[in-house]
Design a protein around this nucleic acid. Structure first.
Lengths: 132, 132
DNA sequence: CACCTGTTGATGCACCCGCATCAACCTTGT
DNA sequence: ACAAGGTTGATGCGGGTGCATCAACAGGTG
């Protein structure tokens, strides 16, 4: 928990310093960037990110306002597609750069290549929903 | 991060189900329980818990309202002592029980004794502020 | 078709967090 | 003693989170 807090604070600080949105925005953006046609349903995002539905709904509102994603109609008329825009993809790459840099500094500097791999494997054993 | 979220959600859920306050309350309570005379200055709590000052201030307000701690005057008249009450200590023990039970279920079930120890050691290497 | 159930997503409300700021007090130097 | 600077803690305000609830739609059954 302490490690998580430390890394999280460092990441959020770096994003803020670079005038970028918070970490959750990156989680959403990267999922969309990896999705076919750069689009996903809110419910899919929610299940992947393990994120509360009402919370995601309002986060997407903000991201639409910021022009990073758009809502588009889809077959199931209850919902819609969340589609990554060009500036959304650009923002995702900016954030990913900061993300990698911070993790390298904060974790990579303290762990060797194989230590990191072992750590990831140990942590993976605890996940109820196996990693992608 | 996924492990942290999973465990955190599980813990908060267990606390809520047992009609207990959130996890941060336990962090404060256990620090007080281990402190000499069951009392600490807010600034000490803040530095141990790596918690923002304004945030801690209001958390303590709520804990005072709940009767788990009291504010008592101290030499340095800028601040005061935060003193654990009897019902605060009782609550801490209740929360600790749930805490241990959940961690055993969520992590202990997936890791052997030595795996857990290795994991803790690897994680410890990343901490900028070495553990107590 | 009409109906019932389950799913998807949005929203009002209360609460919590982050930021900036302030008041009160300690400490140090002169 | 006094002024200047640092430390400790509280608070107004905007924004984010959790809970409960609701509207809209899908899918299956009589």
């Amino acid at each position: 928990m302490r490690v998580h807090q430390q890394v999280t604070l460092s990441l959020e600080g770096a994003f803020k310093a670079a005038d970028l949105p918070p970490l959750v925005w990156h989680d959403v953006l990267i999922e969309l960037a990896h999705a076919p046609d750069h689009r996903l349903r809110p419910v899919e995002l929610g299940s992947v990110l393990q994120m509360a539905q009402y919370n995601l709904s309002r986060l997407l509102d903000r991201m639409v306002d910021a022009g990073l994603v758009v809502r588009a109609p889809c077959q199931d008329k209850r919902g819609h597609w969340i589609v990554l825009t060009a500036s959304g993809l650009k923002r995702q790459k900016e954030m990913y750069g900061v993300y990698v840099r911070v993790l390298m500094q904060d974790m990579g500097a303290h762990l060797g290549e194989d230590s990191a791999r072992k750590l990831a494997r140990q942590l993976g054993k605890v996940l109820s929903q196996p990693e992608a």
